[in-house]
Simulated scan of single mutants.
Amino acid sequence: MLKPLFDVPATPLVPVRGETGGYPVHRIFCVGRNYAAHAAEMGAEVDREEPFYFTKPASAITPTGSVIPYPPGTANFHYEMELVVAIGAPAFRVPVEESHKAVFGYACGLDMTRRDLQQAARVKQRPWDLAKAFERSAIISEITRAGDFPAIGPQRIWLKVGDELKQDSHLSDMVWSVPEIVSHLSRFYHLAPGDLIYTGTPAGVGPVVAGDVMAGGIDGLREIALTIGPAE
């Protein structure tokens, strides 16, 4: 039997509201352009035929309240406030009307992005990995179990940088609903407990610099906070 030649990082655990156990993170899927106004501010259009995705490594997971260094390789580091869906049961080729059975809970998330690298990749028609899939780029709040969160609809989603409100929208503005996203993604992956889905960001994204403090929330969920430290 093979033994590992070196130690590997422990599985990230996300706190669950009111519980002592942690939610172990397996994979991170992210929905692109799921708010029409955000797609427009990025100079793109929403694909209304089907959603599309990118991924982040588990090493991207960072708890709310953290201080993270300004990342290397970028001069245009952006925040993106999002609803996160935590999967809690196996799901493969599930119909939309049954997809809720796979949802463990919900959280606030920040999809931190090296925007200049993303824009350069778009011009060259290259993948977004350098822009999206890097350490400490998926911030997450405490998870609230699905049974303790109302049906998704008019909940406000917002983000401030310092005292300035930057993003202010509602979950009902999502192009693709959570049931549609879970069902569609399950056509391509065997979704499993530990999988997280960042569901896209509303308009108002923008840059942050060292010293900036962000705070955001979604009605009914624990709020999220993040401070940008000096560059590495």
Score class of each variant (00 low, 15 high):
M1Q: 13
M1S: 15
L2R: 13
K3L: 14
V8M: 12
A10S: 14
T11Y: 09
L13C: 04
R17Q: 06
E19Y: 11
T20A: 15
Y23T: 12
I28Y: 04
C30P: 05
C30G: 07
C30F: 04
V31R: 01
G32L: 03
R33T: 07
N34I: 06
N34Q: 09
H38M: 13
A40L: 11
V46Q: 07
V46S: 08
D47R: 11
E49L: 07
E49N: 12
E50C: 08
Y53N: 11
K56T: 05
K56P: 05
S59G: 08
T62H: 08
P63R: 02
P71K: 14
P72A: 12
Y79A: 05
L83G: 02
V84H: 10
V84M: 09
G88A: 12
A91H: 02
V96N: 04
V96F: 03
E98F: 10
S99T: 07
H100G: 03
K101V: 00
K101I: 00
K101S: 00
A102T: 09
F104E: 09
G105Q: 09
G109Q: 10
R114A: 07
R115P: 04
D116F: 07
Q118F: 04
Q119W: 10
Q119N: 15
R122A: 02
R126H: 11
P127R: 13
W128D: 01
K132Y: 00
A133E: 01
A133H: 04
F134Q: 02
R136M: 10
R136S: 14
I139A: 10
I140V: 14
T144R: 04
G147S: 12
D148N: 15
I152P: 00
G153T: 05
I157S: 11
I157Q: 11
G162I: 03
E164W: 05
S169C: 13
S172L: 06
D173N: 15
V175P: 10
P179D: 02
E180G: 00
E180W: 01
E180I: 00
I181F: 12
I181V: 15
V182L: 03
V182K: 01
H184I: 07
R187K: 14
A192H: 01
I197K: 07
Y198P: 09
Y198Q: 08
G200S: 08
P202V: 15
G204C: 06
V205F: 03
G206P: 04
G206S: 04
G206V: 02
V209T: 13
V209N: 15
A210W: 09
D212N: 10
V213R: 11
G216S: 09
G217N: 06
I218L: 10
E223V: 05
A225E: 12
T227E: 06
A231W: 06
E232Y: 11
